[in-house]
Nucleic acid binder design. Structure first.
Lengths: 245, 245
DNA sequence: CGATCCCTTGACGAGTTTCAAGTGGCGTGG
DNA sequence: CCACGCCACTTGAAACTCGTCAAGGGATCG
């Protein structure tokens, strides 16, 4: 696990200086913490820095913390006994990690940084205590898990009923939307993960992902830019291929 | 939607008489309601009876209620624009329906009774108010959604990375476990849904499901009994095929 | 008794995976 | 500064799983 870079003070006061500029401030765990009470979750945060490929936690680890991503991207991976793997999702600034399986003692998936990443961690028991004390915070936590569940149901439809081409188109649109949530360029998205990670996320092989991307490129719907970036040149065509639910 | 059979009184008092014998009493929404406070969610329940094939609610309907299944089984279905469908899950006595997408104004899926079913419904806003007033109840709701999310992640692994045979074996074991939760026969499970529903649940076609079941039957792992029941004769072999995460 | 629905089984084909080779970019080291 | 090697990605061909189309059997209900 990454080094603890700094520990926040006990009150919101000590936090504001550092949280103020945080891109995650306005979303997810931190947003409901800030809105909830004056002495909110922000006072409980510990910053963690991760290098490329470093694990924030591994599948099966004791789940004592919940994490808010401040910068960078992490992949959430589940492994099967025979080596097959599934990427449950990608999280970036503003997303919350590890909230699922509230009573579960251990994490059902591992979290690995795809590049340098910054994360704030909160003790799970403290968050639950805070939810007890502050109904607004409790509703916020509930809403976060609830939204995650809704997203999971969308992905089940994708995994079970969409073709490879539809999966890739859906994924690109989802990444575009995720990027624009925090002020990305309107038609360009970044792919910090490699083809294999995308494949594991979509239930495909990396060769198939590559072929689908090539096809989208050749039809002119997208264009590959240097630095693992993708420009969406025909979003409607992509949405059409994505075959939304 | 089904007829409202009866309306519970405002206090726990009026409910006890009817809830006492309910198989759902000890699980899910009702359990946390009973444990939470004396004047818990049970006082807010309205009973609903459904006939075979009847919808409790449809995809896109306003999501004003949350439901606790008292008897029977329902399937939760999502439809794609082109007619492809996905069964998000099956719920039976003790399960909770419609908790997901807390802030969502509409249901992301429809719920259809697979036989005669009994359901108790609760106004969503009342439940959230109750959670505000009673932290234990709030934690209970959070735990329910959280557990659903954990289950959803298991199913994503199944949908994305398992073969048809593994999917069917996993499904049968899951149904066996679900049946035994409430005192079913140790090695026999009921399948109130047809092959097409199972297929839509597992991301397969009903022909493929049929072939996989036949194969399990021919290897002696299972035996088909009258009344859409299945006897598991070799659970370890099934677990082996299921290729658990 | 017939109709209908669901399930089973077979044959074929499409889409995806698997296996394999080749290309390109990027950092390292000479 | 350039060559080399590594890694990720691309591309091709063959194999295989699963889907599609089609026909038939069995149970249930009117």
């Amino acid at each position: 696990m990454g080094d603890v870079v700094g520990t926040r003070g006990g009150a919101g006061q000590a936090c504001r200086g550092r949280c103020g500029a945080c891109p995650a401030r306005a979303t997810g765990l931190c947003a409901i913490g800030a809105a909830g009470t004056a002495a909110a979750a922000t006072g409980l945060a510990e910053a963690v820095a991760l290098d490329t490929g470093e694990a924030l936690f591994s599948q099966g680890d004791a789940a004592r913390h919940v994490y808010a991503v401040a910068g960078g991207t992490l992949k959430l991976t589940r492994l099967m006994a025979d080596g097959r793997s599934h990427v449950a999702g990608f999280v970036s600034a503003g997303d919350t990690v590890g909230l699922a399986g509230a009573d579960a003692a251990t994490h059902a998936f591992g979290a690995v940084a795809l590049g340098k990443a910054r994360v704030c961690r909160f003790r799970r028991d403290r968050l639950l205590d805070l939810a007890d004390a502050c109904p607004a915070f409790g509703r916020g936590l509930f809403g976060l898990v609830s939204a995650e569940l809704a997203a999971a149901q969308d992905r089940m439809l994708l995994l079970g009923r969409k073709t490879a081409q539809e999966k890739v188109a859906s994924f690109l649109l989802a990444m575009l939307a995720a990027g624009n949530r925090h002020g990305g360029t309107a038609d360009t998205l970044e792919l910090p993960m490699n083809r294999a990670d995308i494949a594991d996320h979509l239930g495909l092989t990396f060769e198939t992902v590559s072929r689908c991307v090539t096809k989208l490129k050749s039809t002119g719907s997208i264009r590959l830019l240097p630095g693992n970036r993708v420009q969406v040149r025909d979003a409607p065509a992509l949405a059409d291929l994505a075959a939304a639910a």
